[in-house]
Amino acid sequence: MVDSCFRCGAELGAPPALCASCGAVQPFRADLSLYAVAGLPETYDLDVQTLRTQVLALQKGLHPDRFANAEPAARRYSLEWSTRLNEALAILRDPLRRADYLLQRQGVDALDERVKVADPELLMTQMTYRERLEDLAAARDLSGMEALRQEVDTAVTGVVQRLRGLLGVLPCVEPEAAGAALRELQFLDKLLGEIDRSEEHLQNA
């Protein structure tokens, strides 16, 4: 689909936010995916550096400061595109939120708060991690916490690798398995947050 500039009619690139010909900021398109807004193909396996470079370059052209003296509509469009670009960077840079976004796009809400996990092996692993963290905190063992963090980081890498496989072709043909992997990643992510908090607590005490 080719979009054209609402002002001069010239063909627009991807994303269709700014006209390369007349420089007009285009009406915001709420229908575009976060990938389309960033002008990137919809893939899970995404190079975060490319994403960041791309978003920053687009932000430069669309920043509201550039339109401070423009007509109200242009000011609003630039703000809307900018806000959405920030959202794209925040969500797509994170392997967890990126997977969640892609699954949501196909109607799978794997992290809905009503979704519960009964997989005993996963729960046992998570319970054991938490117990170890609790013991390390009680023993004020910072290096032990660092070792635990590395272990959890390795586990995260493994799950992201699995998600890469499952989300290699979109829409995902195994949404159940992808959802389970995403939930595991979410547990690990929360655990890393707990490790951060425990370490901070020890360092400030």
Partner: peptide
């Protein structure tokens, strides 16, 4: 054992049942 991934919660609840089928002790973590 149950877990809620949205919050990262993990819950373990245990019961000890006597010969009469009555729960005489319960523990949780």
């Amino acid at each position: 054992m149950v877990g809620a991934p949205a919050c990262g919660d993990v819950m373990r609840l245990q019961i000890r049942v006597n010969g009469q089928g009555i729960i005489e002790d319960a523990k949780f973590k």
